[in-house]
Design a protein around this nucleic acid. Sequence first.
DNA 1: GTCTATACAATGATAGAC
DNA 2: GTCTATCATTGTATAGAC
Lengths: 212, 212
Amino acid sequence: MNAARAHRTRKRTRIQEENEEKILDAGLEVFSTWGYRGATVDQIAALAGMTKPNLLYYFRRKEDIYLAVLNRTHEMWLEPLERLDAAGDPATEIAAYIDRKLELSRDNPKASRLFAMEIIQGAPILGDTLRGRLKRLVDDKAAVIRAWIDAGRLAPVDPHHLIFMIWATTQHYADFDTQIRAVLDTPELDAGAFETAKATMERVFLGGIMEN
Amino acid sequence: MNAARAHRTRKRTRIQEENEEKILDAGLEVFSTWGYRGATVDQIAALAGMTKPNLLYYFRRKEDIYLAVLNRTHEMWLEPLERLDAAGDPATEIAAYIDRKLELSRDNPKASRLFAMEIIQGAPILGDTLRGRLKRLVDDKAAVIRAWIDAGRLAPVDPHHLIFMIWATTQHYADFDTQIRAVLDTPELDAGAFETAKATMERVFLGGIMEN
DNA sequence: GTCTATACAATGATAGAC
DNA sequence: GTCTATCATTGTATAGAC
């Protein structure tokens, strides 16, 4: 985890914390736009407002920056699904999950695009996490959904693919934001656009999976 | 369009056509994996089975290859929506649209990822196309859907966002294929996985938007 | 402890000779 | 249609100044 910073063992100073944060913010920006390989250390340093050698004082290698940025954000990505509660009402729980996921896209579009680039490139870094922790979490929550279906509280849809559909639709508003803005002819996706998206998604998903 | 090949004015020979096609195939592969900037001409040349200088005889610059690859595939992307028929039955038409789009993802995952990378990077090349031709097409078909809604044949959902949802879910199976395979613990998305995906999507979408 | 200047090897894009 | 040369970019290392 912090092998990246093994050369520094002492407690971090205020300047260190501030600079590391600036670097990670810049890294998120650049990696999420260009992917790991397309990003350059120069770009990140410029965005962070420091020189390249100065940046390399904090992170010796490009890969260390990438790892740190991914580590800083990947917890955030699992959290909404973790909160899906087997004891709750199916419609309420699923609607709330969609809301949380859509909010995450709205508030952290760069983090969403960072993950998208990593996955599209074959998940060279996150592959193990996907096959391990993510798979266990999804299997877990798919079992919850299946129990709801077996109890006749939801229409019989495949739980895994239902989750994929929710991921796809919510993340679309972050990852493909450029395309959506082009089609809607708007300079940015404002609160109104997200409200309409949310209403449409809840109507389609809940209408589509409630036994009536 | 073929400004990229303006240096060649004669009719193309068989060898030229074959080599250009090999280059475009290799370019699709490499650009869709690494993005424009992360791709190298060396990689593309190696994949195309030729030397870098030989490749550069056909396309003088990396950007020319990228343009040609995008141009070769972007028509394909508009076609399924173009076929949405106002005179048809709403449920049938929308189900057929979903099918066509999902088939496109299954059969052309690399093209899908190429577009994804281009959009995530802010559509530097395709931006005008998105704001022009794509927007007109979507507005057109959104009007068709709205007419169905006004006639009481569909539930009142926002047509644009419904289309976004269909794009998101279908393309997800190409773009995030690595993540889906990790979660489903399968070496590849086979016909069965696509059947389940299709059934789930049709159940959710049609259940979600039919007035009952 | 923090930052700058400089260097350098590797890679990659492109031009031009053959 | 092929090979070589060139030149900019980029990742990384080091030496030392504040």
